[in-house]
Amino acid sequence: MGPLVINEIISANTNLLIAFLIGIGFGFVLESSGFSSSRKLAGVFYGYDTVVLKVFFTAAITAMIGLLFMSLFGWIDLDLIYINPTYVPSAIAGGAIMGAGFIFGGFCPGTSFCSAAIGKIDAIVFIGGLFIGILIFAEGYSLWEGFYKAGFKGIPKLSESLGLTDGLLAFGVIIAAIGMFYVGEWAEKKFPREEY
């Protein structure tokens, strides 16, 4: 029963090998989907290319449904998987700063490495910026440590916060995603670009 490493079915070192293999799949899919192009990525914010929206939400609902079914079949113990903790102020502020970084730079960290791997110089410069940004956070940590650790809510699931079952929330997310896919398809026809 999964997660394999936590249930000691595989060793910690095998886990690192698996991380490497998972990474290959991750990078391969990102690049094949066009995530190595900043102009394709930024397209979602102008409507001419909504590949980000489609890939991102299809992936999220695929994994979400997969986890629910695997749990139902007794293949994975969901209590043992890592769930991101929730700190409300820093999640909002950090997300907003990342959003600004996305529209300025056209990448997020994962896609920038994927893009650098095929030779995009703008991606390599973006990565240089990432290192500078993380270093600034680390060096000035005492200035924002209080804010960083404020508003801790534990590790709640959205379903618990809304008083829904996991299955009902997943259903809602799927409906929302399908709605967004329609908007995305409409936007690509409404704001087409011949070449970019």
Partner: peptide, 26 residues
């Protein structure tokens, strides 16, 4: 602009405890 975006994203990813992959998607 790529450099500015990278600095912002790097900083934000630390404040937000993960980026688009780790925090948002996963």
């Amino acid at each position: 602009f790529a450099l500015i975006g990278g600095v912002l994203f790097g900083f934000g990813s630390q404040l937000g405890r993960g980026c688009t992959s780790g925090s948002a998607l996963s």
